[in-house]
């Protein structure tokens, strides 16, 4: 049986159910990397992305962790995951950096994934991968359809999983989704940011868990209607062409205008180009709107971020949100 390694970094935190279901249905063994923890900066090959943001550096670390355990590393070249909009340009170079860093110890599967092309981009992508693994079209088609179903179900459950499961179990597909009980807590806080900032323990230091412990119900951008986000973003004077950037701006604009949200937290990576630009935009726009009194917190994440530092900021923020809510109620 062929062992395929999926590094637990970057878009793993969005597409893992899709990818793993696809490979499992084709009869491959899927190996996931372990959390890297603190010591990863000591490794030499991380230097390949030394000028990049933390999630990118972690990608290299995860691949190095996997390289001895698997036959093939699955590092697709994500160019676009949206019909019209693209990913951050750094994603385009990731497979090449991984190839250099691992030095050819394992085969790297670097099929480009461009959702802007063709009628059925996922079909074309899965066919390219399946054929590379030596399967026939019919089996690939069945597997890719099955995988899409798994992904759709997962996306539907994501909000419940975020509110009901520990952060390590959100992407553990063996854990069933908890029932939709109204989660404990009396404060609604929206967390926005790239998925790898939100769900990666090494980057975001489990902000979700921390916020839940402080008595917050978590709202995320995935719970919003994609059409609504698009409509909101399209009113800006310039088209934002990164799909993740659109999601962040749209979600922030919607959440900050909503009454049932008590606070918005934006998680950004230090040196992330998209976040740096959009953060400035959001800050200025909300400074201009005086009537918006929902607290807005930006947390900048890098390898020096500590759990204690995050906890302090979040506690203070939650206190401010509570205060605001009490004033509203009066």
């Amino acid at each position: 049986m062929r062992r395929i390694g999926i590094p637990k970094a970057l878009m793993y935190y969005r597409f893992f159910p899709l990818w793993s279901a696809f490979f499992r249905e084709l009869g491959c063994e899927v190996v996931i990397s372990d959390p890297v923890g603190k010591g990863f900066l000591g490794r030499q090959s991380v230097a390949y992305f030394e000028d990049s943001c933390l999630p990118m550096k972690l990608m290299v670390a995860h691949c190095l962790d996997l390289v001895e355990k698997v036959d093939t590393l699955f590092v697709p070249r994500l160019i676009s995951i949206h019909r019209k909009y693209i990913m951050c340009p750094k994603f385009r170079g990731v497979p090449d950096i991984i190839k250099l860093a691992t030095g050819g110890q394992a085969e790297v599967m670097d099929e480009p994934f461009d959702f802007r092309l063709g009628n059925d981009p996922w079909g074309a992508f899965s066919r390219a991968i399946g054929q590379r693994l030596g399967w026939r079209s019919r089996e690939i088609l069945a597997a890719s359809r099955g995988a899409l179903r798994v992904q759709a179900k997962f996306e539907k459950d994501l909000v419940r999983r975020v509110n009901g499961l520990a952060i390590r179990d959100i992407f553990n597909l063996e854990r069933p989704t908890p029932e939709a009980t109204s989660p404990a807590g009396n404060l609604d806080v929206a967390l926005i940011g790239h998925p790898y900032n939100l769900y990666d323990v090494d980057v975001g230091k489990d902000v979700i868990g921390m916020a839940r412990e402080l008595g917050c119900r978590i709202a995320i951008a995935d719970s919003l209607d994609g059409y609504e986000i698009d409509k909101k973003v399209s009113t800006l004077s310039k088209e934002i062409y990164w799909s993740s950037g659109r999601e962040i701006i749209g979600a922030a604009l919607i959440f900050l205008a909503r009454d049932d949200i008590n606070g918005v937290v934006f998680l950004s990576s230090f040196k992330c180009g998209i976040d740096a630009l959009l953060q400035e935009y959001l800050k200025r726009v909300f400074k201009g709107q005086r009537e918006s009194i929902i607290p807005f917190l930006t947390l900048s994440l890098d390898e020096h971020t500590t759990v204690q530092g995050m906890a302090t900021r979040l506690e203070a923020f939650v206190d401010i949100c509570r205060d605001g809510k009490r004033k509203d109620a009066r």
Partner: peptide, 20 residues
């Protein structure tokens, strides 16, 4: 400028900053 570089969105953000 077009995607994928940030140059394409300079005007969006700079306008807001100058207004502010």
């Amino acid at each position: 400028s077009g995607p994928p570089c940030r140059l394409g969105l300079y005007d969006l953000v700079q306008k807001v900053i100058l207004e502010d």
